[in-house]
Design a protein around this nucleic acid. Structure first.
Lengths: 211, 211, 211, 211
DNA sequence: CATGAATGAGAATTCATTCAT
DNA sequence: AATGAATGAATTCTCATTCAT
């Protein structure tokens, strides 16, 4: 990559980092280009040098986030030969990802609509959907491996189960964050403990015997 | 309630009904006061006679939605003496509620932030939180009943498990809707089937033996 | 017309009057909604209460201008039984119109493109074109009358001749205005004299014998 | 001219050629410096090496256009000894010029304001005006020649008549272009035929006997 | 000389909210 | 109570111009 390209990537990255943070804090809708410009310490016009529109910024965050998520999950899967340990690693990776990329996570789990009302699929959307599907596939294979190792109930259809597991986990992760204070007050668990219990509970639904 | 109060309630109700529908269609952010006024056939200024702000309209919808949800869940719990049948009824009620009150559901499951960034808790928020807690309690008791009847693993701490179950189900319901098309294409299940499989899977995590 | 409608018309009229003046001074492109709002002493948002867009303001000016022009020409035609006198009256009316409605005049003579680049004919454009055609017809009939009275060379095809005459006159009127100073300096004629000579010259091209 | 100057002229010419084309396509206002830079394959900043501002580019186009026009008219005048034939050649040259240099033509005929609202005459404007006057003179002499040859009514004051003729022709040329479709539909004439009829009609106003 | 990069100053349009009647 | 009218404050996006290298 040339020096010029590297610099461009650097600026795009700075902008995306700020945007990701602001989106996480206030949502994409309530985050204005002015906000991003101010925090990123660029002029508003400069934003438009690096991105064609606000939507492109959002999509860039979603896409890079999804790619990262895929990578993290893959690494977690490969990290342990023991399926149960790998399962924990995968869940932990997902939680960590949520912490660092809430906006992308929202899109990955369908909590944010990825297509515009306009109807025409905007630039970048197809890639996002593709990576989304690749993640599903990754997880489905992981389930198949679990079944092969005797850990997972073999009568569960992998793809469907992945979608269910994935959405259930997404719900738990989201709740653990949004209602953190409430959880602490009512059941006295830190977010991390709550999440751990959460994916243990989900594990029970996948495995042969109550865990 | 005096005649005047009744009339006021009528108008508030008309407005809320329209707002709920529009929020469901376009989201709260993209629904304007103009939209609501036009569809409800009031002048925009009149909206401000019955509600102090757009936010109050949103909160009113959330609150009434939560109250309704609580009622529906209570009814479902009471509908069957058999715990397993009651479980199905509860899940079905929740899904139905999501269809009819997506905005309130989003708030009930934490998918929508209920408090303003401003810091000061706006009017109505405490009530919403209270009802939210009451629903959790209702469900916790239902779990306890399940344990008493031998259906639910007794070592599960009820309140915590409810929160987990609740958030997992919320995730599944949301995904089933948002990714309906994707689910149909990849696993060939209708939304209803997918949801049914979903709460059966979650049931397995609660009960003693794989179901 | 109700009082309300009358008031609305009043406001629309005020806005249009200011816009017409600014368009005349700086052109439609360089006149901003801010300019119009400031001069008309409304807030910018109020402009959007009375007109859906800047384009609607422009079109409204064009249409009302064209209607007025048509009326003035009709009146001029009817003002004298003698064709030559009526001819002078028509030319004078057109000149006067140019003074008062330069923007509409520009559109009427094709000096301003009436359709948007977008392709889709925007609201109001068809009416404008229709009135434009009606004016051409009016003038063609006037020529026919001139021929019947023996004033105009009868071998001239009326519609075509009107288009030519009309565009030639438009050119003269425009030049008389834009190059007023230059004309004064080089030939020592006031704009009015220059114009009078202009339409006398054009008359010569229409009539049997050099005039 | 030094080699350096020649190179500079080359670059200025490249830029102006592109700008002229774009101005013709979209108008000066809607053509951006970015557009020009992209098409001319220079960086935007380089444009400012060769021209102080967008306005200077516009003026340079106007000036070179006017010079070209003057040359073409001169050639047309000299092309035939017969005045009537020369007249046709002049008109044809003007029409051709319009096709190739619409922006300059607009300025030459006053359809585009040549001076800025700012008041201070920008660089290049005086030259433009001078050439404009020279063209007028050229044409006036041509008229005088016509009178001497007995073709043109001798009582017509040459300079004034040139201005009138010139503006009338400008109007016809412009209309023939802008309303081409309308003309085709209503009188069934191609633009070329319409224009020919146009300058024949104008000829009648100049000559002794109806033509 | 040539240019990549950056931006200040707008531009049209939107929307929640207020207020006189 | 009900509302027509008005608007301040944003919002996304654009563009001519500058400047360090």
């Amino acid at each position: 990559m040339s020096k010029k390209q590297a610099l461009t990537e650097f600026h795009r990255g700075s902008i995306l980092a700020v945007a990701e943070r602001l989106f996480a804090e206030k949502g994409t809708e309530r985050t204005t280009m002015d906000d991003i410009a101010r925090e990123a310490e660029y002029s508003k016009a400069t934003l438009y040098v690096y991105f064609q529109s606000k939507e492109e910024i959002i999509n860039a965050i979603l896409l890079s986030g999804m790619l990262l998520l895929k990578k993290k999950i893959q690494e977690a899967i490969d990290s342990h030969t023991d399926w149960y340990q790998a399962y924990d690693a995968v869940c932990a990776a997902i939680v960590r990802f949520y912490d660092e990329n809430p906006t992308a996570y929202a899109a990955a789990t369908g909590a944010m609509p990825v297509m515009q009302a306009g109807g025409e699929e905007t630039k970048g959307i197809p890639e996002i959907k593709r990576v989304n599907a690749e993640i599903d596939e990754l997880m489905a294979n992981f389930l198949v491996r679990g079944a092969a190792e005797g850990a997972v109930r073999s009568q569960l259809p992998p793809v469907e189960t992945v979608l269910l597991f994935w959405s259930a986990l997404a719900g738990i992760v989201r709740t653990a964050d949004v209602r953190k204070k409430y959880i602490q007050e009512t059941v006295g668990l830190s977010r991390e403990e709550f999440l751990k219990h959460g994916y243990r509970l989900l594990l029970a639904s996948l495995t042969k015997v109550g865990n």
